[in-house]
Protein backbone atom coordinates (compact mmCIF):
# COMPACT_ATOMS: atom_id res chain seq x y z
CA UNK A 1 0.00 0.00 0.00
CA UNK A 2 1.16 3.55 -0.73
CA UNK A 3 2.46 5.20 2.40
CA UNK A 4 3.43 8.83 2.69
CA UNK A 5 3.91 11.24 5.59
CA UNK A 6 3.66 14.94 4.83
CA UNK A 7 3.82 18.23 6.65
CA UNK A 8 2.18 21.37 5.43
CA UNK A 9 3.26 24.49 7.24
CA UNK A 10 2.68 28.20 7.07
CA UNK A 11 1.07 30.90 9.16
CA UNK A 12 -2.55 31.48 10.15
CA UNK A 13 -4.76 32.72 7.35
CA UNK A 14 -2.81 31.09 4.52
CA UNK A 15 -5.28 28.28 3.95
CA UNK A 16 -3.21 25.40 5.31
CA UNK A 17 -6.35 23.55 6.39
CA UNK A 18 -7.86 23.87 2.95
CA UNK A 19 -4.99 22.19 1.15
CA UNK A 20 -4.43 19.53 3.78
CA UNK A 21 -8.08 18.51 3.56
CA UNK A 22 -7.87 18.65 -0.21
CA UNK A 23 -5.01 16.16 -0.14
CA UNK A 24 -6.76 14.01 2.48
CA UNK A 25 -9.90 13.88 0.35
CA UNK A 26 -7.84 12.98 -2.69
CA UNK A 27 -6.35 10.15 -0.70
CA UNK A 28 -9.83 8.85 0.16
CA UNK A 29 -10.89 9.15 -3.48
CA UNK A 30 -7.92 6.91 -4.32
CA UNK A 31 -9.13 4.38 -1.77
CA UNK A 32 -6.26 5.05 0.63
CA UNK A 33 -6.74 5.44 4.40
CA UNK A 34 -5.65 8.81 5.75
CA UNK A 35 -5.16 10.51 9.09
CA UNK A 36 -4.28 14.17 9.61
CA UNK A 37 -3.74 16.59 12.44
CA UNK A 38 -4.70 20.26 12.19
CA UNK A 39 -3.94 23.47 14.09
CA UNK A 40 -6.86 25.55 15.39
CA UNK A 41 -7.42 28.26 17.98
CA UNK A 42 -4.91 30.80 19.19
CA UNK A 43 -2.12 29.84 16.78
CA UNK A 44 -4.36 30.51 13.80
CA UNK A 45 -4.05 34.23 14.48
CA UNK A 46 -0.92 34.86 12.44
CA UNK A 47 1.06 32.21 14.33
CA UNK A 48 2.69 29.08 12.94
CA UNK A 49 0.13 26.64 11.59
CA UNK A 50 1.07 23.09 10.71
CA UNK A 51 -0.88 20.14 9.34
CA UNK A 52 0.36 16.58 9.55
CA UNK A 53 -0.93 14.25 6.84
CA UNK A 54 -0.34 10.50 6.80
CA UNK A 55 -1.56 8.44 3.88
CA UNK A 56 -1.52 4.68 4.35
CA UNK A 57 -1.64 2.37 7.33
CA UNK A 58 -1.08 4.69 10.32
CA UNK A 59 -2.78 5.09 13.68
CA UNK A 60 -1.06 8.19 15.10
CA UNK A 61 -2.15 11.55 13.68
CA UNK A 62 1.32 13.07 14.19
CA UNK A 63 4.47 12.73 12.13
CA UNK A 64 7.56 12.07 14.24
CA UNK A 65 10.72 14.12 13.65
CA UNK A 66 12.89 12.48 11.00
CA UNK A 67 9.96 10.57 9.46
CA UNK A 68 8.31 12.92 6.97
CA UNK A 69 8.65 12.25 3.26
CA UNK A 70 7.84 15.80 2.27
CA UNK A 71 7.36 19.32 3.57
CA UNK A 72 5.16 21.87 1.84
CA UNK A 73 6.07 25.30 3.25
CA UNK A 74 3.89 28.31 2.46
CA UNK A 75 6.39 30.62 4.19
CA UNK A 76 10.11 30.44 3.48
CA UNK A 77 10.93 30.82 7.19
CA UNK A 78 9.09 27.60 7.94
CA UNK A 79 11.61 25.52 6.01
CA UNK A 80 14.22 26.03 8.73
CA UNK A 81 11.57 25.61 11.41
CA UNK A 82 10.17 22.28 10.25
CA UNK A 83 12.85 20.57 8.19
CA UNK A 84 13.84 18.41 11.16
CA UNK A 85 10.61 16.48 10.57
CA UNK A 86 12.01 15.25 7.24
CA UNK A 87 13.75 11.94 6.72
CA UNK A 88 17.25 12.24 5.34
CA UNK A 89 16.19 11.95 1.70
CA UNK A 90 12.96 13.93 2.02
CA UNK A 91 11.79 16.73 -0.25
CA UNK A 92 10.66 20.31 0.29
CA UNK A 93 8.32 22.43 -1.82
CA UNK A 94 8.47 26.01 -0.60
CA UNK A 95 7.10 29.45 -1.27
CA UNK A 96 10.31 31.40 -1.57
CA UNK A 97 10.99 34.68 -3.33
CA UNK A 98 14.75 34.21 -3.44
CA UNK A 99 15.90 30.58 -3.49
CA UNK A 100 18.40 29.54 -0.84
CA UNK A 101 20.40 26.34 -0.50
CA UNK A 102 19.47 23.57 1.95
CA UNK A 103 22.08 21.29 3.40
CA UNK A 104 22.12 17.50 3.18
CA UNK A 105 20.39 15.31 0.65
CA UNK A 106 17.10 17.16 0.86
CA UNK A 107 15.60 18.02 -2.45
CA UNK A 108 14.02 21.46 -2.62
CA UNK A 109 11.74 22.98 -5.25
CA UNK A 110 10.68 26.57 -4.87
CA UNK A 111 8.18 28.99 -6.28
CA UNK A 112 7.52 32.67 -5.65
CA UNK A 113 3.87 32.06 -4.88
CA UNK A 114 3.20 35.48 -3.34
CA UNK A 115 4.15 37.17 -6.59
CA UNK A 116 2.15 34.71 -8.69
CA UNK A 117 -0.93 34.99 -6.48
CA UNK A 118 -0.75 38.79 -6.66
CA UNK A 119 -0.38 38.60 -10.41
CA UNK A 120 -3.50 36.45 -10.52
CA UNK A 121 -5.27 39.10 -8.43
CA UNK A 122 -5.92 36.42 -5.80
CA UNK A 123 -3.57 36.84 -2.83
CA UNK A 124 -5.59 34.16 -0.97
CA UNK A 125 -4.40 31.55 -3.47
CA UNK A 126 -0.78 31.18 -2.32
CA UNK A 127 -1.68 27.79 -0.84
CA UNK A 128 -2.86 26.32 -4.16
CA UNK A 129 0.04 27.80 -6.10
CA UNK A 130 2.54 26.09 -3.81
CA UNK A 131 0.53 22.87 -3.86
CA UNK A 132 0.58 23.01 -7.66
CA UNK A 133 4.35 23.34 -7.53
CA UNK A 134 4.67 20.40 -5.15
CA UNK A 135 2.45 18.25 -7.39
CA UNK A 136 4.50 19.12 -10.46
CA UNK A 137 7.54 17.37 -8.99
CA UNK A 138 5.74 14.03 -9.03
CA UNK A 139 6.82 13.26 -5.45
CA UNK A 140 3.36 13.36 -3.93
CA UNK A 141 1.13 10.32 -3.45
CA UNK A 142 -1.31 11.85 -5.93
CA UNK A 143 -1.27 13.70 -9.24
CA UNK A 144 -2.39 17.18 -10.30
CA UNK A 145 -5.30 15.57 -12.16
CA UNK A 146 -6.46 13.72 -9.05
CA UNK A 147 -6.32 16.89 -6.95
CA UNK A 148 -8.16 18.75 -9.70
CA UNK A 149 -10.93 16.14 -9.54
CA UNK A 150 -11.22 16.63 -5.77
CA UNK A 151 -11.36 20.40 -6.22
CA UNK A 152 -14.10 20.07 -8.81
CA UNK A 153 -16.03 17.78 -6.49
CA UNK A 154 -15.52 20.07 -3.48
CA UNK A 155 -16.39 23.35 -5.16
CA UNK A 156 -18.96 22.18 -7.71
CA UNK A 157 -21.57 24.50 -6.23
CA UNK A 158 -19.27 27.53 -6.35
CA UNK A 159 -18.15 27.78 -9.99
CA UNK A 160 -16.43 31.18 -9.64
CA UNK A 161 -14.36 30.01 -6.70
CA UNK A 162 -13.57 26.76 -8.49
CA UNK A 163 -12.27 28.57 -11.51
CA UNK A 164 -9.99 30.76 -9.42
CA UNK A 165 -8.75 27.74 -7.51
CA UNK A 166 -7.96 25.79 -10.67
CA UNK A 167 -6.16 28.79 -12.16
CA UNK A 168 -3.99 29.05 -9.04
CA UNK A 169 -3.23 25.32 -8.99
CA UNK A 170 -2.26 25.39 -12.65
CA UNK A 171 -0.17 28.51 -12.20
CA UNK A 172 1.84 26.61 -9.61
CA UNK A 173 2.18 23.60 -11.87
CA UNK A 174 3.25 25.43 -15.00
CA UNK A 175 4.18 29.04 -14.29
CA UNK A 176 7.77 28.42 -13.38
CA UNK A 177 10.90 26.66 -14.45
CA UNK A 178 11.83 23.45 -12.68
CA UNK A 179 14.71 23.83 -10.32
Amino acid sequence: MISQQLLISGVGGQGILFISRLLAETSIAKGLPVITSETHGMAQRGGIVISHLKVGDFSSPLVRPGQADGLIALKSGNVALHRSFLRSCGWIAANVSEPFPVSGELEMTTIDADAIALKLGNPQAVNLVVLGRALSTGSLFCTTEEVTMTLIHKLQEKPALLERALTALNAGTTDCPRS
Binding site: A43, R45, G46, G47, I48, R64, P65, G66, L81, S84
Partner: peptide, 16 residues
Protein backbone atom coordinates in the same frame (compact mmCIF):
# COMPACT_ATOMS: atom_id res chain seq x y z
CA UNK B 1 19.31 7.59 17.26
CA UNK B 2 16.28 9.80 17.25
CA UNK B 3 16.27 12.95 15.26
CA UNK B 4 16.28 16.23 17.15
CA UNK B 5 13.03 17.05 18.87
CA UNK B 6 10.31 18.88 17.02
CA UNK B 7 11.23 22.54 16.80
CA UNK B 8 9.51 25.36 18.59
CA UNK B 9 9.62 29.03 17.79
CA UNK B 10 8.77 31.01 14.73
CA UNK B 11 6.20 33.75 14.66
CA UNK B 12 4.14 34.37 17.73
CA UNK B 13 0.40 34.67 17.21
CA UNK B 14 -0.88 38.20 16.78
CA UNK B 15 -4.16 40.01 16.14
CA UNK B 16 -5.13 40.10 12.46
Amino acid sequence: DLSEAAPVGGRRPTLC
